[in-house]
Computed example of a mutant assay.
Amino acid sequence: MHHADVDIENFHCEWNAGLFEAVINASFGIKAADSAFKFRNCIHEIADKEDYRVDMTSKQPTGEVGMHLNHSIWSVRKGENVFSDPNCPNGLSDFGRCWLAGLMEHARALTAFWCPTENCYKRLHLPRKPGTIDWDFDNRLSSVKVKVDNENRGVYLENRIPSGMTNPYLTLAATIAAGLDGVLKGLECPPPRPELTSDNLPSATALPSSLSEALHALEADNDMVNILGKDLVDWFVLLKSQEVNMRKEPSNG
């Protein structure tokens, strides 16, 4: 991977049998998506040569596969992480709160990009997996986790919604579109996720439970359609709707 210019920080076993996690070092701009794309293709080719099979399908018999997107925004002029402000509560800047508000505002629509297959929705709404549109500081149960690394990277966001089958380029574009919309409009960030109890869980807004539901939410989100481009959204919805309909059609066999 290093020879392919994919900077792997570490590679380790995860919770379930046969499940591994690769952590790719942070990089600026499109290189992050390039690295994720290269990794996914390289790992398949390497495994095939060694007579192994790598499966990144979201829901599997032994567990679930996600692609957590960790990101922050940096000022080119100042060379600073603009999500960080030591004068704000928990170090999350006003810019960062507006960006996070954009992710919360458009999460239902953007789940279509983050979770682009029917199987992806078998991973959502499970224990310890994303199911509601919420965030919190370093809370493993929240859909978006705000992480504070004062010594190195400052504040950054971990979006836990994307699945192992997501297109990293579309995931990156959708994230930037939602975040910028929150910043430009000065959206107010909702409060962080409360402690998970049976009393407060029903009041939270749920993520889509199917690809069809997510596609309808994307089409109805005029802001995301306009920012990402109507042509892109129309073609994406058309392609994914055809996939959904093919799965519904009875087989001739």
Rank of each mutant, 00 (worst) to 15 (best):
G131S: 01
R160S: 05
S58T: 15
E105N: 13
E151D: 14
Q60W: 03
R128I: 04
E80H: 10
I46N: 06
F95I: 09
M67D: 02
P168T: 05
Y169I: 00
M67Y: 04
I43E: 01
N81M: 04
F95S: 08
V54G: 03
V82C: 12
R123D: 00
C88V: 09
D134F: 07
I46Q: 10
S58A: 15
K49R: 14
V76L: 13
T111E: 01
S93W: 10
N90E: 13
E151W: 08
S142V: 08
G102H: 11
V155L: 09
I133Y: 01
H106Q: 03
I161N: 09
I161A: 06
W135V: 10
L110S: 07
G63Q: 08
D51A: 13
Y52W: 14
I43Y: 03
K145A: 08
D134N: 15
G96I: 08
N70I: 05
S84P: 02
G66C: 14
F39K: 02
E45V: 05
N87L: 14
V54L: 11
P130G: 08
A109D: 01
H68E: 11
R128V: 06
I73K: 09
H125W: 12
S84Q: 11
I46G: 07
G66Y: 07
S35M: 14
R128S: 14
M67R: 00
E118M: 02
